[in-house]
Nucleic acid binder design. Structure first.
Lengths: 155, 155
DNA sequence: CTTAAAACAGGAATAATTACTATTGTAAAC
DNA sequence: GTTTACAATAGTAATTATTCCTGTTTTAAG
């Protein structure tokens, strides 16, 4: 699946979406389909609560937990993605010089990435509004954790 | 809180930091100085809890709320910055094609920013580890909100 | 010294999210 | 076409990071 046009074509009632879910080893339950359709149909990038309110009109018995559970599952299976970053403790920096961060997904260490490792953000983004701040965040395995993982495959 | 002056003497290493705080219209209280020093001394980009644990060794009576309150204040005054993004409801997207987002700080609408508005992220970031994901987020006023703001100054 | 404002400690409250538990739906085996 | 096993669900309780509230202490100014 992977793109909006495909999903949109599918969500108008065809059998494509259920098939696509099965391909990803996800059972196409009514709740799941409703959530996914709601996400694909709208461009507003809704949050769990908004999806819940909408889906409830069709499936009045659905629970908020089901929405959360399925968003998590669908994200894990690579069928949808988060717009906002991972929700974790806020971290601070006294260094105000322009730079970015690499966050290790295993040890959660935060490394400074100098601007030279990025291209400067162009003014084109101004097309969408008055840009007040830009946040660039890399996630992955840091060298240390990668080395350990290479040696002993698990954990 | 007893003998604050003693504490003040202890936590006040040099006079530079207090002066800098005053320049930003922030009163250089011992707690504040300790928090800021902790942040500046370490490169680990600590979270509130970590700062709290550290500062507590010098100022055992400090409260966690004071740490949070001051981090907020120092950020608002432009003396420190968050490494992670604003902590708000997670939003999802069914469009997995590479693109970025502009989030309006007023109406919190999320607009899609095509990759063409960004330069592709270079492989240089690999110097820090194995990059699994890159997240780019713009924040500011969207056109609609800006127009409204121009017309009627308040709100 | 007195007084007003800012900052504080401690604990209660909030909001988003996740965990738990008993129940229901469903796919496959018989 | 039942039975069986397991995934998914609803409803609610719990958790976690953060903020709010109240009464007190500290600081700065008159």
């Amino acid at each position: 699946m992977a793109n909006l046009k495909q999903i949109n074509r599918i969500t108008t009632g065809g059998k494509g979406l259920p098939k696509s879910l099965r391909r990803h080893a996800v059972r196409p339950t009514p709740q799941r389909l409703a959530i996914l359709r709601e996400l694909a149909a709208r461009k507003i990038h809704p949050d769990a609560e908004t999806i819940y309110e909408q889906v409830r009109q069709r499936l009045p018995a659905i629970s908020l937990d089901t929405v959360y559970r399925n968003l998590r599952l669908l994200e894990a299976r690579g069928l949808i993605m988060r717009v906002t970053t991972v929700r974790e403790r806020a971290r601070y920096d006294a260094d105000l010089s322009p730079h970015s961060h690499f966050i290790c997904s295993k040890c959660s260490r935060v490394l400074d990435v100098p601007v030279s490792a990025l291209r400067p953000i162009p003014a084109e983004a101004d097309a969408f509004g008055t840009v007040a701040s830009v946040h660039v965040e890399f996630r992955g395995l840091c060298h240390q954790c990668r080395t350990v993982a290479d040696g002993q495959q698990g954990q």
